[in-house]
Design a protein around this nucleic acid. Structure first.
Length: 491
RNA sequence: GUCUCCUUCGUCUAGGGGUUAGGACAACGGGUUUUCAUCCCGUCAACACUGGUUCGAUUCCAGUAGGAGAUGCCA
């Protein structure tokens, strides 16, 4: 039997780490088994729906390189793949359930339900609907309809007995029907289905064979199984994925930091890093390997390496992966990725001039090892495009030296700038060491004076290489400027 | 309140009746270096607890504790 799985998000917010992890695992599982991966839009909550969320979903999946075999945009034989376009189907099947005695109309208002919950909370009684409308006669119903009340349709959960079900990860489970959510709503009064109804109907008609979703859905498995039975359908294989938590052990959310992929993307995380790291939450390959490309995961992913315990999302490890992937990029690839960040920061003009392009191209190898995020780039190489505005005396004058000595060093440097350009780094080093010996200063101090004069800070890419990019003329200007500022006593 | 799931270093995890309980991130220390970063080396660090089964349990079983999730006309 062909494996058919789906990712069925609700476009009510930005795609976040947890959702993407579910999408990824479904996608990998389909690929690894030569099956189909479907995308379905569960937009039955009209209150919370937003176009922005839907666009974010598409762009996130595209960015990660996840293509769906059937779904919106690409189509397929089980369409439409957007639930709001399938409402007639849900209504029809909800009615069928009423006709067969598996469901009933409920006329309780939201207000009554709210009061009921409130009361149950105070009295510390069991929560849930009290099944008031479960056995309403036709006359009673007609009366309520005459009052203009638009009913919902609720599923009849058996009042006794057990429901047995199985989860690939968790094994066989059995639940008393009295412990199942009493008579959940299937069709809302606005005519839209709830998750439970739409999900079961769509999974059935779309031929879904395996349901991989987060463990927060465990409590509704019996409910779904009861629904499948009511329809006379065979439920798919369930596999509930461990949840993704924040550092405090609670469900990952905004208060733990960025969780939307869009935020990570804006900050300069690479899709490879996100995909690789996220795949390792709740899944592992063996006892040592943890680098995987998307293509590799499409081959290697298996359900039996899933972990049952929830996993904490570790931002630091993600950062580490991102650094690793940045360093794996070719210079040209990295440069293309960096340009938008430089343009946005105003470090270069938009579009870049030829001169800027040339400088950047040469600067990428210098910056590569210093980037944690792509967005770090303006800070790392900004000085190549713009002279520093001021100098901090403390940074400029080495600890054991004074202003006079610093000025002397600057003077010596400005007299030998051509060597920085013409000689290779290997050639110039002994020359610099000789000069330091002459001056009686350490090479580190000597170059630190130069570094601060040229870049404005004590932290920068290798200074010799930087000067080669800057050119002797510009370097000279910056040194002269530093000398003047130092002499005038300004900071 | 009720129901359900989970439990190996701080974090992600490997392992599994007999192991020096392995790896990675982090942290800390050291080395390379021209600052930072990279890179390299090292150190610290875990089987929640209590019973049972067994010659032997971190591994199997039960209970306890702790954590999490669900309990919506949200998904």
């Amino acid at each position: 039997m062909e494996v058919r799985v789906r990712y069925a998000p609700s476009p009510t917010g930005l795609q976040h780490i947890g959702g993407v992890r579910t999408a990824l695992f479904n996608y990998f599982f389909a690929r690894a088994n030569g099956g189909k991966f479907l995308l379905r839009i569960e937009d039955t909550d009209r209150e919370r729906y937003s176009d922005e969320s839907l666009e974010d979903l598409y762009s996130t999946l595209e960015w990660l390189g996840i293509k769906w075999d059937e779904g919106p945009i690409v189509g397929g034989s089980c369409g439409p793949y957007v639930q709001s376009e399938r409402t007639e189907l849900y209504r029809e099947y909800a009615r069928k359930l009423v006709e067969t005695g598996h469901a009933y109309y409920c006329y309780c208002t939201s207000e009554r339900l709210e009061q009921l919950r409130e009361k149950q909370k105070v009295e510390k009684k069991e929560f849930g609907y009290d099944r008031k409308c479960r056995d309403l006669s036709e006359e009673e119903q007609q009366k309520l309809r005459d009052q203009g009340i638009r009913p919902v349709i609720r599923l009849k959960i058996p009042l006794d007995g057990y429901t047995e079900y199985e989860d690939f990860l968790l094994g066989k489970m059995k639940k008393k029907n009295t412990d199942v959510n009493p008579d959940p709503i299937l069709l809302k009064s606005d005519g839209f289905p709830t998750y439970h109804l739409a999900n079961v109907i769509d999974d059935h008609f779309m031929g879904i064979t395996h349901i991989l979703r987060a463990q927060e859905w465990i409590p509704s498995i019996p409910l779904h199984v009861i629904l499948y039975k009511a329809f006379g359908w065979e439920p798919p294989v369930y596999c509930h994925l461990p949840m993704v938590m924040g550092s405090d052990g609670q469900k990952l959310s905004k208060r733990h930091g960025s969780t939307s992929v869009r935020d990570f993307r804006a900050k300069g995380y690479l899709p490879e890093a996100i995909l690789n790291y996220v795949s390792l939450i709740g899944w592992s390959y063996d006892d040592s390997r943890e680098f995987f490309t998307r293509e590799e995961l499409e081959r290697l992913f298996t359900l039996d390496k899933l972990n049952k315990a929830p996993g904490v999302f570790d931002y630091k490890k993600l950062d580490w992966f991102n650094g690793q992937y940045i360093r794996k990029k070719s210079d040209d690839e990295l440069m293309a990725l960096l340009i938008p960040y430089l343009e946005k920061a105003g470090t270069v003009s938009t579009p870049m001039t030829e001169a800027e392009t040339a400088v950047l191209k040469a600067a990428v190898p210098l910056a590569k090892e210093r980037l944690k995020y792509l967005s770090d780039i303006p800070e790392v190489i900004g000085f190549l495009f713009k002279a520093p505005e001021n100098y901090c005396r403390e940074d400029l004058i080495p600890k054991k030296l004074d202003q006079t000595k610093t000025l002397e060093i600057l003077d010596v440097l400005s007299g030998m700038l051509d060597k920085f350009i013409t000689m290779s780094e290997e050639e110039i080093e002994p020359v610099l060491r000789d000069k330091c010996a002459e001056l009686g200063v350490k090479l580190g101090d000597f170059l630190m004076v130069l570094r601060v004069a040229v870049t404005g800070t004590r932290i920068s890419p290798p200074i010799v290489g930087s000067i080669k990019l800057l050119g002797a003329e510009e370097t000279e200007r910056r040194i002269k400027n530093t000398i003047n500022l130092l002499k005038s006593g300004d900071k």
